[in-house]
């Protein structure tokens, strides 16, 4: 340990801006490649969304980063420390919720937290009870502190898991699917918790298959698909590389298509929007909009001038979901 410390010290100076950094990180289980050479860069202070459908290798990546599983190849650093050599130094500064919370059912919520805190040999036992109480209070479980964990609801367990990750001040919080099993109210609470933790300067790394969650709270995101990292960057960057689309709702579908094509747009009829479904005479026409195309307001003017009756006109900014579908060919399981 002491031999590796100076090296870790040195490199820390060069990569302080990254909380998590992987390079060519690969994890194979036998012949099956779970994580395929990913290069993650999670900036300090970011709220980083780690997106991907279930089974895309998110949890495996998190396990490898936290030293639970050994990488097959590649290198990584967490809070500037090499993994796995520097983990003992890095992990006390990392709080984590991995693949759902897990507790001793026969211990109370508070005792479960005490046990996890005792496992951290850097945690000060003198302040343990206070820190446990504060963490429980922060996730709104103060009233259930003495209840056995087996009596907790799924949502309470999830919050207890987050409380465990917040037992000591952390520099990095790794949350794997933190809103799983939570009702809408609970989901909102977790989101505001993440915001408040991030406001204290803690880097938050949230994995999720729920796009909306990531879009609402994250500053950065990375998208996983079948073990590979297909995109990462700030949310603005990710959105920016997508396509803006204009959508015209009109009874004169064919006229609209012709006129838009006349304007040089690649227009096509699409299924009418849901709200207009009963209106049999309404058609929807969409066309991607790129930089040298006419401004949307000019398009409307041109349509009207050509006698196309415009009932609705939309300019749709690219969403993360569109980006995701474009990159992975899959949609999010929104229902979950």
């Amino acid at each position: 340990m002491s031999a590796t410390a100076p090296a870790a010290e040195q490199t820390e100076a060069t990569s302080t801006e990254l909380a998590i950094e992987t390079s060519g990180l690969t994890k194979k289980f036998g012949q099956q490649v779970a994580v395929n050479g990913i290069d993650l860069a999670v900036p300090r202070g970011a709220v980083f969304g780690f997106l991907g459908p279930n089974g895309s290798g998110k949890t495996t990546t998190i396990r490898v980063i936290l030293g639970l599983a050994a990488a097959t190849s590649g290198s990584m650093r967490v809070l500037g420390r090499g993994v796995p050599a520097g983990l003992d130094d890095a992990l006390p500064r990392v709080g984590a919720l991995i693949e759902g919370p897990a507790f001793y059912p026969f211990l109370s919520g508070a005792d479960n937290l005490r046990r996890l805190d005792a496992a951290d040999r850097h945690a000060n036992p003198a302040t343990r009870d206070d820190r446990v109480a504060a963490a429980l209070d922060r996730v709104g479980l103060a009233h259930a502190a003495r209840k056995k964990a087996r009596a907790y609801s799924l949502g309470m367990k999830q919050r207890l898991g987050i409380a465990a990750a917040l037992l000591t001040p952390r520099e990095l919080l790794v949350l794997d699917e933190p809103t799983n099993g939570l009702d809408p109210q609970g989901t909102r609470e977790v989101r505001s918790l993440i915001r408040s933790v991030a406001a204290e300067g803690t880097t938050v790394f949230v994995s999720s298959h729920l796009l909306a969650e990531v879009e609402q709270i994250c500053t950065h995101a990375a998208i996983m698909s079948v073990g590979s990292l297909v995109a990462q960057g700030s949310l603005a960057d990710l959105r920016g590389s997508g396509q803006t689309v204009v959508r015209v709702t009109t009874p004169d579908g064919e006229g609209a298509v012709a006129q838009l094509r006349h304007l040089g747009l690649d227009a096509a009829s699409v299924a009418p929007p849901r709200g207009a479904g009963r209106d049999l005479d309404v058609a929807a026409v969409e066309a991607p909009l790129s930089g040298d195309d006419p401004a949307p307001e000019d398009i409307v003017a041109a349509l009207v001038a050509a006698g196309v009756r415009v009932r609705g006109f939309d300019v749709e900014q690219p969403s993360l979901e569109d980006r995701f579908v474009a990159l992975t060919g899959e949609g999010f399981d929104v229902a979950r």
């Binding site: 006390p92 984590a96 919370p101 897990a102 507790f103 040999r121």
Partner: peptide, 18 residues
């Protein structure tokens, strides 16, 4: 099997110590 092993290890308890 409880799942608590992963939390003990990232605490970090240290594998040898555990």
């Amino acid at each position: 099997s409880l799942g608590t092993l992963r939390y003990l290890l990232v605490a970090p308890a240290g594998r040898v110590r555990l």
